[in-house]
Amino acid sequence: MGTLERVFHSVLFETLAVTSSILGLALFTDHDIGALSGTMIVIATMAMIWNYLFNLGFDRVMPGEKTQRSMSLRVIHVLLFEAGLLFFTIPVMAFILKVSLWQALLMDLGVTIFITIYAFLFNLIYDHVRAHVLQRRVLKGVRAVS
């Protein structure tokens, strides 16, 4: 996966994640949509940077065909990613929303549980759709040569 595709992957992931997270937090907290939107945009920006760096490193440590990754490796991948992200986002959420670190932890854990499931499904689907698209390109190239 090249740099341009990694950026596309991160932006698509975060756009869907931010929208869902804002709606979820609005349902379960008394913060207004404006404050939550600003917070989640900052968190998403942090997550996009972390996503790029973490996955670049993970792919170097675990090379090979992504569609062949085991479920246990996918679970480890998403848990490591989310734990690293929590480390950075809890203080930011506490500061922006003017809540304690404990409250930020609870809010961020709620978002993280949702995002962990979402990330697992998003990446599983993305990897298989990507493999399908690449396979179709190869088949079109073979037909064009024939």
Rank of each mutant, 00 (worst) to 15 (best):
L97W: 07
A94K: 01
V92S: 10
L80V: 10
V61A: 11
L109F: 10
G38T: 06
A26L: 12
R130W: 01
R6H: 09
T3Y: 14
M1Q: 08
V142G: 01
L109M: 13
K66H: 08
V78F: 02
A83H: 02
I33V: 15
Q103F: 07
L121I: 15
N123M: 13
A35I: 06
A83T: 14
S20G: 15
F88P: 03
V11T: 07
S21H: 01
N55Y: 12
F120D: 04
V75R: 01
M1P: 01
R130M: 11
I33D: 00
Y126H: 13
N55G: 10
K98T: 08
D127G: 04
L124P: 00
F87S: 08
F58A: 05
A47R: 05
V18F: 01
F114K: 08
L97C: 03
V145I: 13
S37I: 02
V61T: 10
A44H: 01
G110L: 10
G64H: 06
N51E: 12
F122A: 05
Y118N: 03
I33W: 10
G24C: 06
Q103E: 15
M1N: 06
G57E: 02
V78Q: 09
Y118T: 05
L86Q: 08
I96H: 06
F114I: 01
H31A: 13
V99L: 09
V61G: 00
V78Y: 03
A119M: 10
Y126R: 11
L25N: 04
V99K: 08
L121C: 15
Y52H: 07
L121W: 09
Y118L: 05
V7P: 01
F8I: 12
V42S: 04
R6D: 03
A83Q: 05
T89W: 00
P63K: 04
S21K: 04
V92M: 14
M1I: 05
R136A: 14
T89L: 08
R137P: 00
H31Q: 13
D32N: 14
L80G: 15
Y52T: 02
Y52K: 03
A35T: 12
G24V: 07
A44R: 03
L36T: 02
N51M: 08
L4K: 03
M62L: 10
I41H: 06
P63H: 08
G141K: 11
E5C: 01
I41T: 12
M93P: 00
Q68H: 09
P63D: 04
S72K: 14
S21P: 00
G64Y: 02
N123I: 06
S146P: 00
S37R: 06
L27E: 06
F8N: 10
R136T: 12
